[in-house]
């Protein structure tokens, strides 16, 4: 191994549900501080791929390496490894019975074993980072979708992850709420967080990410810099997909 291994390395990931093969050998890597965006038609395995990374859905075949450790090795303490990979869900999945503060704090006390005091100040800090320190005592059902998603991000950040996984973080949001979540994500990327983002927000992809990966039918069709991607895509399929997306979500112009 090199002295500086990539934060995340995927080798030949395969996953089937029953007879349907969702992922047919996906490989790529993510280096420290990079942001990569995963795009592709729905049902093409993007969410499954994210879940394969943190082993919420163990892959059938292939290897996932996090910072030089193989997660697909059965000897690895996966609960420990997951603390290093924050995950943000499409439907937020905030703990319904806890207010915003406790949503962020729970992992700190029950997983990291931090004491109450320390965990609380850390949780407040994270809420501040996403601009929600005033909503600390609100329950999920009392928050807007955008606010819930920001709490979701704070909850993941609180664990001090080396890598953040975003699973269509804005696609369940009303259009006017998308901006506040993207803003937080842009700040994060600029602050040097390593991120893997599944999204249809081409504006975000174009302005923030280092590389776009186009996944279709369980395989990587094309990957490259945003510039290359939008200006001269190699594949017809990529062009077709980009056209459709810009039709649906309003183009990629800044």
């Amino acid at each position: 191994m090199l002295s500086n291994p990539p934060i995340l390395l995927l080798k030949n990931i395969h996953k089937s549900y029953g007879t349907e093969e969702v992922l047919k050998g996906v490989s790529f890597e993510l280096n420290k501080g990079e942001t990569k965006v995963l795009i592709g038609p729905s049902g093409t395995g993007k969410s499954t791929l994210l879940r394969c990374i943190n082993q919420l859905t163990p892959p059938d075949q292939g290897e996932v390496w996090l910072n030089g450790t193989e997660l697909t090795d059965s000897k690895v303490d996966i609960n420990k490894a997951r603390q290093q990979m924050g995950m943000v869900f499409q439907h937020f999945n905030l703990f319904a019975h806890l207010d915003a503060l406790n949503n962020v704090k729970l992992g700190l006390t029950k997983v990291k074993g931090m004491n109450e005091e320390e965990a609380k100040s850390k949780a407040i800090e994270e809420l501040e980072r996403v601009g929600l320190s005033t909503q600390a005592s609100s329950y999920p059902a009392q928050l807007s979708g955008g606010q819930q998603q920001r709490v979701g991000i704070a909850r993941a950040l609180a664990m001090d992850p080396k890598l953040m996984l975003f699973d269509e973080p804005t696609s369940a949001l009303d259009p006017e709420l998308i901006g506040e979540v993207l803003e937080v994500m842009i700040d994060l990327a600029e602050a040097g967080m390593t991120m893997l983002v599944v999204t249809h927000e081409m504006g975000f992809a174009r302005s923030v990410c280092d590389e776009i990966i186009f996944l279709e039918n369980g395989k990587i069709v094309e990957q490259g810099s945003p510039r290359q991607f939008f200006e001269s895509p190699e594949h017809k399929r990529t062009q077709g997909f980009l056209d459709k997306i810009s039709e649906l979500y309003g183009g990629a112009e800044r």
């Binding site: 609960n79 869900f89 937020f92 703990f95 997983v111």
Partner: peptide, 23 residues
């Protein structure tokens, strides 16, 4: 209870047992 609750618990590193107990 929605499946996402347990997913979220597991994603921050909780064991299945802790997920059941705390969530």
């Amino acid at each position: 209870i929605k499946g996402g609750q347990m997913l979220a618990a597991r994603s921050i590193g909780m064991s299945r047992f802790k997920g059941i107990v705390f969530i």
